[in-house]
Nucleic acid binder design. Structure first.
Length: 483
RNA sequence: GCCCCCAUCGUCCAGCGGCCUAGGACGCCGGCCUUUCACGCCGGUAACACGGGUUCGAAUCCCGUUGGGGGUGCCA
């Protein structure tokens, strides 16, 4: 079996659709797993698709995902000559003909003939000459069927009479997708066409063109199941979050996204879902791809992303999260200073808690902030309603004054010890960690305190403790505290 | 309307005639761990759409029904 040649052929739409990304990935997986080549082709036959400005919107996200290609991008907008030549041949052979009927005229004729809406071969024998406004239509067979042996779906048969005489050249002289597809796949030596199921119905038309052009054995086809939303409809720009770039902005890791995408419509035989792409390449099998549509489930994506987040080294976390952290401080942001060292030092504590890069800031920003931003609910729950908060803050402040801040263990034992001590005196359990946490971070949930305290240092820690104590005293807390 | 595709837990995958009292993962629920929140660990919940065949035997094969989806453009 010769090495396959596949192609990813998106239309430039200004962004990369997750469904397209999945298609690109499966093409890539197939090519890479079989030592084949992948070509990138931009399907911009429609003049309204301004390829040039939109190419980056496809190329860049593909690179982000880790998908590379061996050839291209080729642009259909630059291959008009090839298409024109093919169209001429078809017309000369009588396989295609000119038509000058407008949309309304076509519908009027359909209504008049009491036929379903659409074109019904009216210009076949009208002897229309080429000229301004004339399109070229392919003369579809009136009998028989076109059979496609799909690698995923098996044999699919399309009755030819159901096919209209579709347009292969527009009035402006440009070729349509169907024609360009056949010509390009042939000229680019494509062996396997792997694309979305929404194109399954287009396949017989391309195949008919292929035969009419005398192209010989056609490529193999594999139609991937569609990606759908929770309502089981094809993912669409209007109603769904379909831009790959948007997921990137939300802080998903490209390797997690690629891993998840690979799981939509396919699963590794050994059931290990989260794994390096190299292993997925080795295990990938086009014939094992599922037939039914797959729901793009953001929750599972989150799970996978979280797993990849946890697997990052501290340096990697710092590097990846940087774009999400820088700019959070200073002008327009919180008072404070972005400190990559703090992120690096706390990485092991941040990683199991941040499911996405965008969540990293929420766990560490207080360490870098100049001012504590108290969460009112946390303050009330811990400082006002909590047991012995004031006493804890006082004793902890006292003990910390002479403590060794280089040792996180020491800081922990001081805070915990203070709680135990007060608890013993009161004859009730005192959770000293909570008030200290609120005093330092403003929140009652967060990273283990000891590492951050070390980073804050004695002065800053004591200053925050002091501020919280003053605030507590100021509020005259006491009456509704449950001692 | 016509053409095409699909049909296993809520979701994603396993299953390709007997190993299935249907397996894994996400989610959800419960527990353990834990002086926060997570992570981790343990356990639980939950499905072969329906009806006919074929067969000693069907989630697996065939037919039909129903349901869902896609296409039906001078978009791709």
């Amino acid at each position: 079996m010769p090495a396959p040649r596949v192609r990813f052929a998106p239309a430039p739409t200004g962004y990369l659709h997750v469904g397209s990304a999945r298609t690109a990935l499966f093409n890539w997986l197939f090519a890479r797993s079989r030592g084949g080549a992948m070509v990138l082709r931009i399907e911009d036959t429609d003049a309204s698709l301004k390829a040039q400005e939109y190419v980056d919107a496809i190329v860049e996200p593909l690179g982000w995902l880790g998908i590379d290609w061996d050839e291209g991008p080729h642009f259909q907008s630059e291959r008009g000559g090839l298409y024109a030549e093919a169209i001429d041949r078809l017309v000369a052979a009588g396989a295609a003909y000119f038509c000058d009927l407008s949309g309304p005229e076509i519908e009027a004729r359909a209504a008049e003939a009491d036929l379903p809406p659409g074109y019904h071969g009216w210009s076949r024998d009208r002897g229309v000459k080429d000229g301004p406004g004339a399109v070229v239509r392919f003369r579809a067979p009136d009998t028989g069927a076109t059979v496609v042996d799909d690698l995923i779906r098996g044999r699919v048969s399309f009755p030819n009479p159901a096919l209209e005489d579709f347009v292969i050249r527009r009035a402006d002289g440009s070729a349509t997708f169907l024609l360009a597809n056949a010509v390009d796949d042939r000229h680019m030596g494509i062996s396997h066409v792997i694309r979305g199921e929404d194109l399954l119905n287009a396949t017989p038309k391309v195949r008919l063109l292929w035969e009419a052009l005398g192209y010989g054995p056609p490529p193999a086809y594999a139609h991937l199941p569609l990606l759908v939303n929770e309502k089981r409809q094809k993912l669409a720009k209007r109603r769904d979050d379909v831009s790959l770039g948007h997921y990137r902005e939300q802080g998903y890791l490209p390797e997690a996204m690629a891993n998840y995408l690979a799981l939509l419509g396919w699963g590794p035989p050994d059931k290990t879902e989260i794994r390096p792409m190299a292993e997925i390449v080795a295990l990938f099998d086009l014939g094992a791809v599922t037939k039914s549509p797959a729901f793009f489930d953001p929750r599972k994506l989150d799970h996978i992303n979280a797993a990849y987040m946890r697997a990052l080294t501290p340096d990697e976390l710092v590097e990846r999260a940087e774009p999400f952290l820088r700019g959070r401080f200073g002008p327009g942001g919180r008072a404070g200073r972005y400190d990559p060292e703090a992120v690096r030092a706390l990485a092991p504590e941040i990683q199991p808690r941040a499911a996405k890069l965008s969540e990293v800031a929420g766990w560490v920003d207080w360490v870098m902030a100049a001012e504590v931003d108290y969460d009112p609910r946390a303050w009330h729950k811990v400082m006002v309603k909590g047991r012995a908060a004031a006493e804890v803050l006082e004793l902890v402040s006292e003990r910390l004054a002479g403590a060794d801040f280089a040792s996180a263990e020491r800081l922990e034992s001081i805070v915990m010890g203070a709680g135990d001590e007060i608890g013993a005196r009161l004859g009730a359990r005192v959770l000293s960690q909570a008030p200290v946490r609120v005093a330092l971070s403003g929140s009652n949930v967060g990273l283990p305190l000891w590492g951050p305290m070390r980073l804050l240092g004695r002065d800053e820690t004591l200053a925050r403790l002091r501020k919280a104590r003053a605030r507590l005293a100021e509020q005259g807390g006491g009456e509704d505290r449950e001692i």
